[in-house]
Simulated scan of single mutants.
Amino acid sequence: METWVLITIAAAFLQNVRSAMQKHLKGVMGTTGATFVRFGFGLPFALLYLALLWQAGHALPVPDGTFLLWATIGGMAQIAATFLLVHLFSFRNFAVGTAYSRTEPAQAALFGLLFLGEKASSGAVVAIAISVVGVMLISVARTTLSIRSLVTSVFSRTAGIGLLSGTLFGLSAVSYRSASLALAPSLPAPDYLMQAGFTLGFVILLQTLAMLAWIVLREPHELGRIRRAWMPAALVGFVGASASFGWFSAMTLQQAAMVKVVAQVEMLFTFAASFFVFREWITRLELIGSLLIVLGVVMLLVP
């Protein structure tokens, strides 16, 4: 199995753990605070990763204007996408609340084509489509299944928020790949670990400063809530930074859309967390939808 696939599966598992922790934090702080925790408490760990790589002999890259542009776009898009995803927890259960954003691979493929000229094979397009169908089934699993319910679910407020979240996640994924690749010319040789680590360190620092400024100016009461929950928040930061390092590494090695299709296995981890941790029951259609997601991943990986 290729390196980027193993890294992606590990990152998907860690991201699911982080999301489950964020849902618990949502009960003790607002959406903004729960979103900030992912970045602010992940910053020390991201910088530690970068320092360890440098100490291990990896050369530091020299960022240029292209890197700064894409890293900034990706960082701001991810903040907005994460905010919307955390907000979704208020609408439906943990498993389904995250499902609407799973059109991210298809949208990442589109952004990859528009900005990087990356083309997906016909087999990859079919795999992405099957995964998206699985997501649609999950989104209507708790309603009467019909053409009308499918259309209604797509145009509902909850679906709209989820789809926008997926769009922003797709944009951020392609932006991060662009930023990481832009560092290669300044290195003695391509080094996906350092390219990913440097991009992660820069982006998470930018995100932390931007969100901290917003909280101080607009929601200062969140600072007290964040401080009181510093222990679970630190754990969220560590797990989130570890997952992000995996994502950045995988997307340096492979097209963002391909990485995001494999990342759909997170839905399996999500259902497990939904059932075993949050005691939320899973419907038959949700199981079928998850199987379609897995089928899409298998189709992508099997020649």
Rank of each mutant, 00 (worst) to 15 (best):
V5D: 08
A11K: 02
A12R: 00
Q15P: 02
A20Y: 05
K23M: 15
L25D: 02
L25P: 03
G27T: 07
M29D: 03
G33K: 04
T35Q: 05
T35H: 09
F36D: 06
V37R: 09
R38Y: 14
R38F: 13
G42A: 09
P44T: 03
A56D: 10
D64I: 05
F67L: 04
W70T: 13
Q78N: 11
Q78M: 07
A81C: 10
H87V: 00
L88S: 15
A95W: 04
A95Y: 05
A95E: 04
A106I: 09
L110A: 03
L110W: 14
L113D: 01
K119F: 15
V126H: 01
S131A: 15
V132P: 11
V135Y: 01
M136P: 00
R142A: 02
R142E: 12
L145S: 08
V154T: 09
V154W: 15
G162H: 07
L164K: 06
F169S: 07
S172D: 12
S178H: 02
A182K: 04
A184D: 00
P188A: 13
D191S: 09
L193E: 08
L193Y: 09
F198G: 05
T199L: 04
L200P: 02
L205Q: 07
L206H: 09
L206K: 13
L212G: 11
I215Q: 04
I215G: 02
I215P: 01
R218S: 11
E219W: 13
P220W: 01
H221D: 15
I226M: 14
W230A: 14
M231C: 11
P232T: 05
A233P: 05
G240A: 12
W247T: 02
K260E: 15
V261Q: 12
L268G: 14
F269V: 01
T270A: 12
F276T: 14
R279H: 14
E280S: 05
E280L: 05
E286S: 06
E286C: 08
G289E: 04
L292A: 10
